[in-house]
């Protein structure tokens, strides 16, 4: 299973589920990363961390470790 952190530049993915063992899981859900949503990797900062995703018509930056708990189809 791939995570959002493994998306390539400009690649889109559909969220399957959020790994709830991650301490930030609930906040990730609350900002809109919910199952069924399409996300697209827009940019990576230097060291590939944090990463910015297009989600629900906005751009949200999250750390790589946080992107890893977003599992995509």
């Amino acid at each position: 299973m791939r995570s959002a952190a493994e998306l390539k530049y400009g690649e889109k993915g559909m969220i399957d589920f959020i790994d709830e063992s991650h301490p930030s899981a609930r906040r990730i859900l609350e900002v809109g990363f919910t199952p069924g949503q399409e996300i697209q990797l827009i940019s990576k900062s230097i060291f590939s961390d944090p990463m910015a995703y297009s989600i629900r018509g906005t751009l949200i930056a999250i750390r790589k470790s946080e992107a890893e708990c977003i599992k995509i189809l």
Binding site: T58, I62, E66
Partner: peptide, 11 residues
């Protein structure tokens, strides 16, 4: 507190 960085980048 755990460290986290979740930030919206406004248009």
């Amino acid at each position: 507190d755990r460290s986290s960085f979740i930030l919206e980048l406004p248009s």
